[in-house]
Design a protein around this nucleic acid. Sequence first.
DNA 1: CAGGATCCCAATGGATACTG
DNA 2: CAGTATCCATTGGGATCCTG
Lengths: 126, 126
Amino acid sequence: MRKQRHKSENLTECPMEATLDLIGGKWKGVILFRLSECTRRFNELNRLLCRISPRTLTKQLRELEADGLIRRTVYAEVPPRVEYDLTELGQSLQPVIAALMGWGTEYALPHLNSAEKDTASTAEFV
Amino acid sequence: MRKQRHKSENLTECPMEATLDLIGGKWKGVILFRLSECTRRFNELNRLLCRISPRTLTKQLRELEADGLIRRTVYAEVPPRVEYDLTELGQSLQPVIAALMGWGTEYALPHLNSAEKDTASTAEFV
DNA sequence: CAGGATCCCAATGGATACTG
DNA sequence: CAGTATCCATTGGGATCCTG
């Protein structure tokens, strides 16, 4: 995802590609969702996405910031405090985030579970 | 994306992760969009996604099929004909696909273009 | 036509340890 | 607290050639 778009090649004209280029990847969707709930700090995100490494979280946040979807605010305090929130553009993603979450809840999760565990579990309860 | 989910570890309970696990990646969104328009054949898809290699297209189609989102139909003809279309589960993605496309058209594409070409173009027209 | 086989490179992302 | 630095394993995906 995103690959070498910044080397100003690989320009796409497909809306779907463009969108997944920005919010696809393993973590960005979840990050954006968490930031759509409220402003959050680095370690807060790290706890919520408990299986992401700090290194990866940093990278994802930097990319989202570079793409203008989130804002990074540093407070000159001790201990240091950094907050992330959605930009206007990021806010405009709300419907998309909602759609992804909605489908995930209604279809993806049940589908994954029934496919992974046993297909009979639900099949015989009919 | 999807990594070794089939090795029955890495189970997620996050709807967003689950969804992006299924439709994320560089190509799946576009493939699903194209199949949401109508049933299509392999080379047809390959032409529409003109920058994908046959090898990759095959892999993505197989994953989508394994995940129950698309259906693969082989016709015993000469020359061989294979058609792909959405399953019921795939159909249920329509709103999601629409949301991604919509946002891409309205925000992502303009955003990418203004960011990549010149920022001043719009800035001074105010 | 619809791919499979093989080779190979680049990008993703995890683990761990360290720091201003 | 909010990251960096380093190292390394896995994956995505292109190129090319081949086939039922």
